[in-house]
Design a protein around this nucleic acid. Structure first.
Ligand SMILES: [Mn+2]
Ligand SMILES: [Mn+2]
Ligand SMILES: [Zn+2]
Ligand SMILES: [Zn+2]
Lengths: 142, 142
DNA sequence: CAACAGTTTAGAATAATTATAATATATTAT
DNA sequence: ATAATATATTATAATTATTCTAAACTGTTG
């Protein structure tokens, strides 16, 4: 649970001006007990629900991308329709529920990060992520 | 290297009429020594390069999705801009070269498919895929 | 061949995202 | 504090990928 002043410092220290839009977005994204996944549209809706003045959609895009560049958010591609973002910036894996389109985090206790036995020559590994797609089993019991 | 007549049979046996557009797309996709990855746009360009009459973009979309539904293609989400498709329909993992936007297959010898220690209740696992993002190492020595 | 269902097509529609350029705000220098 | 500068926000237009539509066409079956 960070306060406004702490967000201000965090933003300043990463070279981002602490505007009221950015502070509001920080509050919505980071003033929480748990990390979560969202789309830009989810976020825009959340903000406008809580806020009297609106934040322009362009600003939401700009801010989310700025935060991603600074490492405060991760982008996750599961389906090509829209981008998901993640306030959990640690290395972790996901279940994707194809029934509900829900993304669920899972750590190394549930899925061990696989070892890469041989890398591409001259390249550095930036991330290793596992995606498990699940859906209701329509193949009822035999 | 399959021939036209074989594609005709394959299509018929899966309930798809062997139209000339579908046969041409089969040829471009499956008449090869190796599997590969492509975007709809790549495919449309390939076709129009080889062909005098054009195949409508809508037909390319329709056909790719029909082939995917029949299991002849897989769809892969790496970046949210566009969809990649894969003529390799086996379970396998990928390197994604962030410099070139190239997708590279890799099998269990290079990346072992991770074990899922605990699944979501009441759901069936449809796929487990590893994505390794790599890029040139700009972090030169020391 | 006739009839029908399935397919293709061009173009319009949609949806996510990015670009533009004018206005506003935050920071820095005076 | 004020002015100058750099950066951010905004409404709106543009772009891009993808899907929809409805008319024309083609493959299949009898
Ligand atoms: Mn799709
Ligand atoms: Mn993006
Ligand atoms: Zn996550
Ligand atoms: Zn592949």
């Amino acid at each position: 649970m960070l306060k406004n002043a702490e967000f201000t410092n965090k933003l300043r220290s990463s070279g981002l001006r602490p505007t009221k839009q950015r502070l509001k977005i920080c509050e919505v994204l980071f003033n929480r007990d748990h990390t979560f996944h969202f789309t830009i549209n989810d976020l825009a809706k959340n903000i406008s629900r809580e806020l009297n003045e609106k934040i322009s959609l362009a600003t939401v895009y700009n801010t989310v991308h700025a935060f991603k560049k600074k490492g405060y958010l991760k982008e996750i591609s599961i389906n090509s329709d829209k981008s998901y973002f993640d306030t959990n910036t640690t290395n972790h894996h996901h279940f994707f529920d194809e029934d509900t389109n829900e993304l669920i985090d899972c750590d190394d206790k549930i899925i061990e990060t696989p070892k890469i036995k041989k890398n591409i020559l001259g390249k550095k590994i930036n991330s290793v992520e596992v995606l498990v797609k699940v859906a209701t089993d329509n193949q009822n019991q035999k």
